[in-house]
Nucleic acid binder design. Structure first.
Lengths: 167, 167
DNA sequence: CGTCAACCGTTGATCCGTCAACTACACTCG
DNA sequence: CGAGTGTAGTTGACGGATCAACGGTTGACG
């Protein structure tokens, strides 16, 4: 697995950002690209699922009854409803998810995590978390993690309205 | 312009990350997704170019003679050679870039920034930098920027010259 | 020289996600 | 009830990026 170089995008000859600011921005962008790329590759190589798949599986696992309406999934994943339809198609094909229609509202169709899907998630989750630690967390001390969390949480989009219960 | 919600991917019921660590990771991912999404949309709305386009234009502008071999572009942007071929096709079509063959090595073909392309970049650069300030930099004090830059620079891929050895 | 490996850029097939259009259903209000 | 409005999910057409394969070029080495 070859893990190429780096990606930027930042100041222009015309309107440069200040030195340190530019560095911060570049590191932010580039590290993200690199880390996510490796994470993707590892998840795919070791468990045959994409990060998107994993994300959806995780949301379902955390949801009441291990099922969510397609729209809810779309919202959480920041995908289009149509995108989610296709993604879930794949997961259904892989046996990780079933479609279940909703008795109270015939319009909605739940994506329901199967036992196989849950098992798949558990397995993937272990190595995924390990990867995250290795690629991200391990570069900082606990105090630094706290600082980082505090700073990053101010950025747009960093604060979902609670919502996601872990465990 | 609707700027949807948030994207996660993180701990699983099976192997959760520690609380603060999880928060840091989530903020990192989610803020990136949100910010990049807005940046993309603004660049497209105001100047009709993709972030990728902008990136390529910027690299060319910074390069010796405002031109680079396709492979060099691919490397810098973290795109495939084939991806770059197609992207540059577009820029050529838009008149921002020309293809120039290399006299010393008939295999390489330079992407050469045109004057029009440079002008385009300058215009886009202004508002782009403004957007970056608004979405990223303005959330921190100068000292915090420094701290952030220092922390982020440790992550894989954050160091342009420092070789990207992961795996 | 002549061969062969490595390399550059392009192309065809394909995957993944979007947008826009459509179907089916639900809810409100006359 | 029945029309109109809005919502949930799917589908077709398309764009962007990848991989695999190819043709042209270079450079090293027998």
């Amino acid at each position: 697995m070859e893990v190429a170089t780096f990606p930027p995008l930042a100041a222009t000859a015309a309107s440069p950002l200040d030195g340190t600011a530019l560095e911060a921005w570049r590191s932010y962008l580039q590290s993200h690209a690199s880390i996510v790329r490796v994470l993707d590759a590892e998840l795919m190589a070791e468990h045959g699922i994409t990060t998107r798949d994993y994300e959806v599986l995780l949301y379902l696992a955390q949801a009441e009854g291990r099922r969510l309406p397609m729209s809810a999934l779309a919202e959480r994943t920041m995908l289009t409803r149509s995108g989610i339809t296709r993604l879930v198609d794949g997961l259904v094909g892989a046996g990780a998810v079933q479609r279940v229609s909703c008795p109270e509202d015939a319009r909605v169709s739940y994506a329901q995590l199967t036992d196989a899907g849950y098992e798949r998630l558990r397995e993937a989750g272990r190595s995924h978390a390990r990867s995250i630690r290795r690629l991200f967390l391990e570069h900082f001390s606990p105090e630094e993690i706290e600082v980082l969390a505090g700073l990053l949480s101010r950025l747009p989009g960093a604060r979902p309205d609670g919502a996601c219960t872990v465990g």
